[in-house]
Lab assay of single mutants.
Amino acid sequence: AVSDRLIGRKSVVMEAISPQNSGLVKVDGETWRATSGTVLDVGEEVSVKAIEGVKLVVEKLE
């Protein structure tokens, strides 16, 4: 599936994300709604860990 190619990809937070609120990330020039178990600020680099419905699950790059 097209979405499977996103797992493991680097992306950049475009709208802040917290455990309570989804935000936005940009992956390969496309904007996606995303969630995370931690707070992520605009501009942080993250990695796509999973896809749940139409949202990406991301975490901060170490």
Rank of each mutant, 00 (worst) to 15 (best):
Ala1Gln: 13
Ala1Asp: 11
Ala1Asn: 13
Val2Thr: 12
Val2Asp: 12
Ser3Cys: 12
Asp4Lys: 13
Asp4Gly: 11
Arg5Leu: 09
Arg5Ala: 10
Leu6Asp: 04
Leu6Ser: 03
Leu6Ala: 03
Leu6Cys: 05
Leu6Pro: 03
Ile7Phe: 02
Ile7Arg: 05
Ile7His: 04
Arg9Thr: 06
Arg9Lys: 13
Arg9Ile: 06
Arg9Cys: 10
Arg9Ser: 07
Ser11Ala: 15
Ser11His: 01
Ser11Lys: 01
Ser11Met: 13
Ser11Phe: 07
Val12Ala: 03
Val13Lys: 00
Val13His: 02
Met14Tyr: 08
Met14His: 07
Glu15Tyr: 03
Ala16Glu: 07
Ile17Gly: 02
Ser18Gln: 05
Pro19Asp: 04
Gln20Val: 10
Gln20Tyr: 10
Gly23Tyr: 08
Leu24Gln: 07
Leu24Ile: 10
Leu24Ser: 10
Leu24Ala: 10
Leu24Trp: 12
Val25Glu: 02
Val25Ser: 02
Val25Tyr: 00
Val25Leu: 02
Lys26Ile: 14
Val27Glu: 00
Val27Ile: 14
Val27Arg: 00
Val27Asn: 03
Val27Ala: 04
Asp28Thr: 01
Asp28Glu: 08
Glu30Pro: 07
Thr31Phe: 14
Trp32Phe: 14
Arg33Val: 15
Arg33Ser: 14
Ala34Ser: 05
Thr35Ser: 09
Ser36Gln: 01
Ser36Leu: 02
Gly37Met: 13
Gly37Thr: 14
Thr38Gln: 15
Thr38Cys: 13
Val39Gln: 11
Leu40Glu: 03
Leu40Phe: 09
Leu40Cys: 15
Leu40Asn: 02
Asp41Trp: 10
Val42Thr: 05
Val42Ser: 04
Val42Trp: 02
Val42Phe: 05
Gly43Phe: 05
Gly43Cys: 07
Glu45Gly: 05
Glu45Ala: 09
Glu45Tyr: 11
Val46Ser: 03
Ser47Gln: 14
Val48Met: 02
Val48Ile: 14
Lys49Ile: 15
Lys49His: 07
Ala50Leu: 06
Ala50Trp: 08
Ile51Asp: 03
Ile51Phe: 06
Ile51Leu: 07
Glu52Asp: 14
Glu52Val: 13
Glu52Gly: 04
Gly53Asp: 07
Val54Ala: 14
Val54Ile: 13
Lys55Asp: 09
Lys55Gly: 10
Lys55Leu: 15
Leu56Met: 05
Val57Ala: 05
Val57Thr: 05
Val58Ala: 00
Val58Met: 00
Glu59Gln: 08
Glu59Tyr: 01
Lys60Asp: 04
Leu61Ser: 09
Glu62Met: 11
Glu62Tyr: 11
